[in-house]
Each structure stands twice: as C-alpha cells, then as structure tokens.
C-alpha cells in the first residue's frame, strides 16, 4: 500500500466557485461531438424550460477532476500520478447544469484499498449551486498501477 490510508473519509469543501459559461459549454459539446441545440442555442434551451443553455451530462468532470487533482497531488497521500488511470466514473443527476450556474463542489475520499499490487482510491462529490440547489452527485475511482508490473 503506497497510499496513506488515513485520507479515507477526509472531506474537502469547495475552495472556489466555478461559474458555468455558455462558451465553455459549447467548447465541451463540440469536443465530444454532441451538438444538441439545448447545449448551443439559448432559444432551444428556453423552449425546454431552462433559463439558458444546459451542459452535456459529463461536463461537470471539469470541476470534479479539478477537485480530485488537488487531493491526489497532496504529497502526503503518496500517489504516483504518472501511474494513475481512471478506473470508473458515475453521475447521479438531479437537474441539468445551466449556463450561469455558480457551482460548488464538496468532495469526500470514500475509500482507499490495495489489491494485486494496485492501489485504488474512490471519491464522491456533491455538486450544487451556491444557492444550494443540487445538480449532480459524482463517483470516481482512480487506479494506481503497480510500479513493478512492467518487469514481466
């Protein structure tokens, strides 16, 4: 076990607010080739009852990953970033993220474990607006591959 297990259960309240921009949503939607009108066109989004354009389902990885990276880059955790890969990811949706939302991310280290030489660290994050409206709960597991596996 290379990771410091005492990180399990630690909570990281939001240290900044992320304001969702219309053009950032467009940039993200184009990068995944998802050009639904409600992501790009205010009128189309309003016709569906939203205040402004909404974001594609995986858009909040921007804030989710930023929060996780701050934790995994803590030298006390002992995580070798160069051997880290994404193991799994999940999202529970309460309401689409809307342009203009000011998002706050509260991240929790759910679990740390070691199996067959690989280390696993899982996170849960609550993404809400600063007004307290729930948007998305995310779940993520990172895998730190065994440093010796390349020897075979």
């Amino acid at each position: 076990m290379a990771l410091d297990e005492s990180f399990s259960g630690r909570e990281y309240p939001a240290d900044r607010i992320y304001e969702v921009g219309r053009e950032k949503i467009r940039e993200f939607a184009e990068a995944i080739g998802d050009l639904r009108p409600e992501y790009l066109d205010q009128e189309a989004a309003r016709a569906l009852g939203y205040r402004d354009v909404i974001a594609p389902p995986t858009f909040t990885m921007i804030v989710n990953l930023d929060a996780i990276n701050k934790i995994v880059n803590d030298p006390d955790l002992g995580l070798d970033y160069s051997r880290m890969v994404h193991g799994d990811q999940g999202f529970t949706y309460y309401h689409p993220v809307v342009a203009g939302d000011r998002l706050s991310v509260h991240t929790v280290v759910d679990n740390i474990m070691s199996r067959a030489g690989n280390d696993f660290i899982s996170f849960r994050a609550e993404i809400t607006t600063v007004e307290g409206e729930r948007r998305i709960t995310t779940r993520a597991q990172l895998v730190v591959r065994d440093a010796d596996e390349g020897a075979a």
Binding site: V85, H86, G87, D88, G90, Y93, R139
Partner: peptide
C-alpha cells in the same frame, strides 16, 4: 427521456 444516472468502468 431525462438521464438520471450514468456510470461506467474503464
């Protein structure tokens, strides 16, 4: 319909 949950392993 509306997406309420989405998960995957890599």
């Amino acid at each position: 319909g509306a997406l309420v949950d989405y998960s995957a392993r890599f």
